[in-house]
Amino acid sequence: MADVDKWVYSNIVKDHFMHPRGFLVGAPKEGEFDAEGEVGSPACGDIIRIWIKVDKATDRIKDIKWQTWGCATAIASASAFVEMIMKNGDMKIDEALKITPTEIAEYLGGLPSRKFHCSILADKAFKKAAENYRANQ
């Protein structure tokens, strides 16, 4: 990972931050998603929420959306995470669960070290959503 000690964002982070993808505007519609997960960062007080729509038969993620009240890295991480899941078509929940915060940071071209904790938020919120989904099955 580049730039770990510098207070500099990679161009990929900037791009995701300035042009975030896969976020949800406003509240979800009835039946739009099957489960949601929310985490607050104990570190800085930020909040991220992730919604998923899953194909029951195949356990594949049909749709995933996020919202965050957080810093540039939190926004970029959420955007990148959703992109990683959706870019090659629908991913299985188990596969998505394997994505680590380090992989999110790498996908973003590296994060300043003091911002690494923000990439954990997206991952954690998704894990919660997946848990909630399973609990309701």
């Binding site: 931050f17 300035m18 570190a43 800085c44 007080g45 930020d46 009240w69 957080g70 810093c71 540039a72 890295t73 939190a74 926004i75 923000c118």
Partner: peptide
């Protein structure tokens, strides 16, 4: 969130600061 506001403003050419924890 303040840091996000600062960076969006920076992109517009404006420099200011924030009290955000982030």
């Amino acid at each position: 969130e303040g840091e996000a506001i600062i960076l969006y403003l920076d992109n517009e050419g404006i420099a200011c600061s924030t009290g955000s924890a982030c």
